[in-house]
Design a protein around this nucleic acid. Structure first.
Lengths: 230, 230
DNA sequence: ACACTGCAAACCTCGGATGTTTCCTCTAGA
DNA sequence: TCTAGAGGAAACATCCGAGGTTTGCAGTGT
């Protein structure tokens, strides 16, 4: 195994074992390199890799720190990974969302505070009559994001967030708007909101299922007539 | 933004835009470095980072290649991330599994082939009477893994795989075995299998829910009496 | 008490040199 | 002719050392 990979494992080990706690500062590059028995160059490669997945945070002129290691932060890194997937796996991702989002919406109906719900309402009303594609995407994303937040489970929230990444959703919306399905989406969002506001988890779950399934259905058709794969 | 991060984005862009397809070989370090306008050292840091998340695959003496970018490969990288989470978020992860696994089990009851089911049976029978902790963990992991595979959705499968990472599960089992709950777990596995073999998705879903909830319940108690946090 | 200056620490980037591994070709022998 | 082995070229792995840039902090003057 390359020394760099070894270094990655060792740093990982130091963090997991507790030798390095969240927020701790690592020894300076030169010292840590000597301690791990490799050159600064190689160590930097290891640090950079751990940086990409948000485990480490380097600040020029200051030092290298272990991040908070919160689920949100770490799962956020998954967005980066999801971006790489091609169109032919979009349906698979959507199928996962079809499992997660209804469950999350039901949880949100139970766990959201009144303030959260009020903000959700504001979000729905904040959308103008003929919105641009950008504001539509942003509004849709934020709506589902608030619900995910409302579950009270940061892991679930981050996971949904990643899966609904801007890329995937943007692609979906770009087509959806052309079909004029905006109104229906807005109605369904409203229905989901009403169910949450009424504290009806099962109703909320059902509307969420309807919502996601509609998108899935449309996407399946769009992909079917567009690409001829499989 | 540091030049290395820029390089990461550029390489990512080249892949997403299709300029670099899965399996393609990148230009050699020196050339790519010049093309991107940075030094080899900095480029190597970028490559190493993309390597950690399985987007690139470097082979000494050969070259650097874009991986297949399959969901399994990319989501696998998430296992690395999940390893960093501390005990206080285990319940949150388990809550997500409680959503995903029942749904997956139901899907498996519909989609698994007869061969898959036969192998699942073999797996259950293959466990000796008084297994070691290691074989127990391995068997349990493989059982749920086969079911996840049986959904036919690689994204869902990899996701479940990552969340049920060895670390988390090992910790859970270590305690479970001490309580003598092995028999009950085995019964539930058997019940899940029977439901799948009978092609009863809803029954399979219910048993999976029962199974996961049992683990969750036990874990909640164990954490409650052990740690005094929150 | 506040603001500015200066310095030191730490990371950032670069370029080159040397070691290792892999792949491919060429050759010698069967 | 086919095959096995030797050799070399290509590409990555690792290291080292030299500046450059940013940040945090202490010291200083008002």
């Amino acid at each position: 195994m390359p020394v760099t990979d070894e270094a990655i494992d060792k740093i990982k080990g130091m963090i997991i074992s507790g030798e390095l706690a969240p927020g701790d500062r690592l020894p300076k590059e030169a010292d840590l390199a000597q301690h791990l028995g490799l050159s600064r160059s190689s160590l930097r490669e290891a640090v950079k890799a751990l940086c990409l997945i948000r485990v480490l945070d380097v600040r020029q002129g200051d030092g290298t720190y272990v991040t908070s290691l919160e689920p949100k932060l770490l799962l956020d890194a998954m967005t980066f990974v999801v971006d790489f997937h091609r169109d032919d796996t979009v349906l698979d991702f959507l199928a996962v969302r079809r499992i997660l989002e209804p469950a999350a919406t039901a949880m949100a109906a139970t766990n959201m505070t009144e303030e959260d719900i009020a903000e959700l309402a504001k979000l729905l009303e904040g959308l103008e009559e003929s919105p641009t594609v950008e504001s539509l995407v942003a509004n849709d994303l934020e709506f589902h994001r608030r619900i995910a937040l409302g579950t009270g489970n940061p892991v679930l929230c981050s996971l949904i967030d990643s899966l609904s990444g801007p890329t995937t959703r943007a692609r979906i919306w770009r087509g959806l708007t052309q079909e004029g399905a905006v109104a229906k989406t807005r109605e369904q969002h409203r229905a989901i909101y009403d169910a949450i506001a009424a504290r009806e988890p099962e109703l909320a779950r059902s509307w969420a299922t309807v919502h996601i399934s509609g998108v899935e259905q449309w996407l399946r058709n769009a992909l079917g007539e567009h690409g001829e794969n499989s």
